[in-house]
Design a protein around this nucleic acid. Sequence first.
DNA 1: AAAGATGCCTGGTAGC
DNA 2: TGCTACCAGGCATCTT
Length: 271
Amino acid sequence: MPELPEVETTLRGIEPFILNKKISCIEVRKSKLRWPIPSKILEKNLLKESFTSIHRRGKYLILKSKNGYLLIHLGMSGYLKALDYETHIQKHDHFDIKFEDNSLLRFNDQRRFGSILWTKSPESHPLLINLGPEPLGNNFSGEYLHQASRKRQVNIKNFIMNSKIVVGVGNIYANEALFISKIKPMKKAGTINLSMYQDLANSIKTILRQAIDDGGTTLKDFRGADNKPGYFKQHLQVYGRGGEKCLTCKSILKDIRLSNRSSVYCAKCQK
DNA sequence: AAAGATGCCTGGTAGC
DNA sequence: TGCTACCAGGCATCTT
């Protein structure tokens, strides 16, 4: 499941290959993603135009063109490939944008939870307008989390996974960040003090930056046949390790479910 | 009204 | 071999 670091890696990977190239063809092989791909609108607005810049907001990629913006969300299993030439279609290759030089941007999504949308103004788009701050931005801090969590009954793990609070913290990094900052995932958000929130905010920033840095290694070969940026499972200390030993204290890691999401933690290290 | 809980979408995989 | 259960992110919808 692409998390924020994978989306950022994807952005950096495709950026050199898609900007300022005239779009010659849009091909939709499977329209039915989370929402239908608006094929007609894309053709009307993008053909003969080009992307002039690309940004990320949370896990959304925003590709700017003269007439508006293409919004791409990778969902759980989506990825983008920048291809030199038209290559044969692989399973779940649902969508192509072809450029005049015969290069391609291709979207593959096995589970089809991703989305390809069009908007004239991303800042007022319903999917983006209520998003919280970027975790790597200056508006995200321990002070912010502390202030936003007062009187909240929800557990801290769901709190930081709530995109209205902060974007881009998925299940993997929520588990990891709580372990690093020694906070139990089920602790109520409203009961956590400022100092703990400062630790937590720092942990989130550190782990996301680290994953983005690691993703950089996949970038040099981004253009090619199989360019799924790898998922950065290299430093995971708790996610997927339920029943195994805590790397700090050797006690057995617990694996519980919070709001139907697996949550792994160390009962001894996390308070 | 705002916060929290639940359901849904899909397809690969594990278990039997 | 075929089936059922499970899992994942995040939005929609329901309940409190």
